[in-house]
Amino acid sequence: MEAEKSDVFKESLLSDATDGKLNSFNDNVSNVTCMNDIDSCVDELSNILDGVASPLFKRNLSANSYKNDYVDNKWYTSECEEKRLSLYNALNMYRSNKSEVNRLDMVCKRLQYKACIRKARLNYDRSETQKLLDSRKKNAKLYWKMLKGAAGVKDANISLDTFEKYFRSVNNPEDRFFTPDDDILYFMERYENNEFNIMFEELNVPFTNSDIITAIKQLKNNKSGGLDLYLNEFFKNGKDVIVQYVLPLFNKIYDIGYFPTVWSEGYVISLHKKGSINDANNYRRITLLSTLV
């Protein structure tokens, strides 16, 4: 986080408007009685921090905001570019007003863009294949040039559906790809033997101010956020304000014994390990969870 933005972020946290929202949040936390109340408070805190951070860090997307990985490909057409611009316009609309109508429009534009890309690539591949077949007998020089060009390393050609099915399978005990995790087996055995009190006795105490400060000091910069888009820098630069509001929330979660649903969700990122980049079995996954957890 840049020094100038860090100072503005701190000032925004200390503003009267934000202070009023945080005090209201604290009141709501103190009145929590059930799991739904916990989820509502987590969402409320997320909205407050988003309101402080968005003016500093959120940007509208333009045609050049993100690298276009396709534009340099020969198969990329003007129609593809039009669909891409249409998608980013729809995404900007959704970011400014997260209504269901705007969300559906964004999803529709994204599907149209992806479909256009697939069609353009398919048509180009068909054309190149036919050119290769024709040159085999008519133009030997072109034929070997095309073969050499085809030997280059290409991007992985694995659909999201394929990744989803594979990652689900490795977590399904009834699937042939499933591999039991020793730590989970040990944990489940302790649970079935009612040994949790022995395992977690030292952790079975309320959170303290120093616990949270110590945890924040251990956070590293330039790490990805989860679904709530919290960055470690938010807590490191705003700890003097944030801790006094996060502490009651954590202890209320501890008292009720409920882990917020949203903290169990995250972005799944695929990392190639070895072998063919077009085989989902050669990837491992990491999940980006909320940095607040």
Rank of each mutant, 00 (worst) to 15 (best):
I117N: 02
N68G: 04
A120M: 01
N60S: 14
V71T: 00
K119S: 00
L61W: 08
A150K: 15
R136H: 13
S96L: 05
Y143P: 06
Y66P: 01
V107G: 06
Y76F: 15
A150L: 08
S127R: 10
P55S: 03
R110L: 13
D72G: 05
L142N: 13
L49K: 06
K67D: 02
N92R: 06
T129V: 09
Y94G: 01
K109F: 03
L49E: 09
E100H: 07
Y124C: 07
A53D: 05
W144M: 12
R118N: 03
R103G: 13
K98V: 02
S65L: 07
K83W: 02
L85D: 04
M106H: 02
S135F: 12
L111P: 08
K141R: 12
Y88N: 03
K119Q: 05
L104N: 15
D105L: 13
N47E: 11
R95C: 01
Q112L: 12
V71I: 07
S46I: 08
K109A: 12
S46L: 08
A150H: 10
K67R: 04
W144E: 09
R103Y: 15
Y143K: 07
Q112D: 07
L91I: 05
K74M: 08
E79N: 07
N47P: 06
R136K: 14
E82W: 08
A150P: 01
V71D: 05
K114T: 14
E81T: 00
K58M: 10
Y66T: 07
L111N: 14
D50H: 06
S135A: 15
S86K: 15
N97C: 04
Y143E: 09
K67A: 01
I48V: 10
G51S: 09
K141N: 12
A150V: 00
S96G: 02
A63G: 03
M146S: 15
V71N: 04
M146Q: 14
T129H: 14
N92M: 03
N60Q: 14
L122W: 08
R103M: 11
R59M: 06
A140I: 10
T129Q: 13
S86T: 13
C80I: 04
I117M: 04
D125K: 10
K114W: 04
L61Q: 09
R84V: 02
N139S: 11
L133T: 14
Q112P: 03
W144L: 10
A90R: 10
Y76T: 04
